[in-house]
């Protein structure tokens, strides 16, 4: 494909330990600018931990995380957001006690320019018109699907260059899942936003991504173009339901 494109993010032999538990055993990833890349694997394989290591929520024991040529492995979460990485966490984690509007405003916490905030908010409303209907509503009263839209919208408010999504389909009505995945592709195409997607629904994830990594017990066991992974018999058996 476009081999000349640069890597926006590289993980080199990243190791994460929780006490005596070895959560990530030497993970290496290469993500090209503009791609949708997916991480698939069973529960407890280390997908969420990988995303948390990138966004600075968990400290790494060894290895390096290189973002746009700079080592970000020692930065704090808010400094990593400042560099243009946004993370939509597992379980959405919208601020349930704040209104939809306040959630989006918090998404743009580091943005000082009111015009940029306004235009980004208009963009979020154009992707998820339902949020606009509910701006005054407390986020905790939204449905699961709407909360996921809000979580993605809030992440977009920081004008990221690199977006990480952790299980966006979790606990959401099937019809809305389809809608949200279409929007993810739309965001990627329109904004040229690079996306790293962690998803339990491996079929769906491989459909919209260009490249995939398969994690097992904190290690990458297979990586390839998503279409190739979809036809790999072992992957089909283990993750795609036969």
């Amino acid at each position: 494909m476009f081999e000349s494109r640069q890597n926006i993010l590289e993980l080199h032999d990243v190791v994460v330990n929780f006490g005596v538990i070895n959560a990530l055993k030497s993970i290496s990833l290469h993500i090209k600018t503009g791609d949708i890349v997916t991480l698939i694997g069973a529960n407890g394989a280390g997908k969420t931990t990988t995303l948390r290591a990138i966004s600075g929520l968990v400290p790494i024991k060894s290895g390096r995380i290189i973002y746009q040529g700079d080592d970000i492995s020692l930065l704090k979460p808010h400094q990593i957001v400042r560099n243009g990485i946004a993370h939509v966490p597992e379980g959405r984690m919208v601020f349930a006690n704040l209104s939809v509007l306040e959630n989006l405003q918090m998404g743009a916490y580091l943005q000082q320019d009111k015009k940029v905030i306004k235009s980004q908010m208009d963009y979020v409303y154009s992707i998820f018109p339902r949020l606009k209907e509910r701006i005054k509503q407390t986020a905790g009263t939204l449905s699961g699907g709407e909360q996921q839209m809000l979580a993605i919208g809030r992440a977009l408010m920081s004008c990221p260059k690199f977006l990480m999504l952790d299980e966006p389909s979790l606990g959401i009505a099937p019809l809305l899942v389809k809608n949200i995945f279409e929007k993810i592709v739309e965001i990627n195409r329109q904004q040229g936003l690079t996306i790293l997607l962690v998803e339990q629904n491996a079929n769906l994830a491989l459909d919209i991504s260009t490249y995939g990594y398969v994690l097992e017990s904190g290690k990458i066991i297979v990586q390839d173009n998503s279409q190739v992974l979809k036809t790999n018999p072992e992957i089909r058996k283990a993750y795609l339901g036969g």
């Binding site: 979460p77 808010h78 946004a86 984690m93 601020f95 349930a96 918090m106 916490y109 580091l110």
Partner: peptide, 22 residues
């Protein structure tokens, strides 16, 4: 903005740090 950030941190400190709140 600071007050809203206080409420955000109070609700979920991890999510607050992910939107760039120190």
């Amino acid at each position: 903005k600071m007050g809203t950030a206080m409420r955000a941190v109070s609700f979920n400190p991890m999510a607050a740090s992910l939107v760039g709140i120190n």
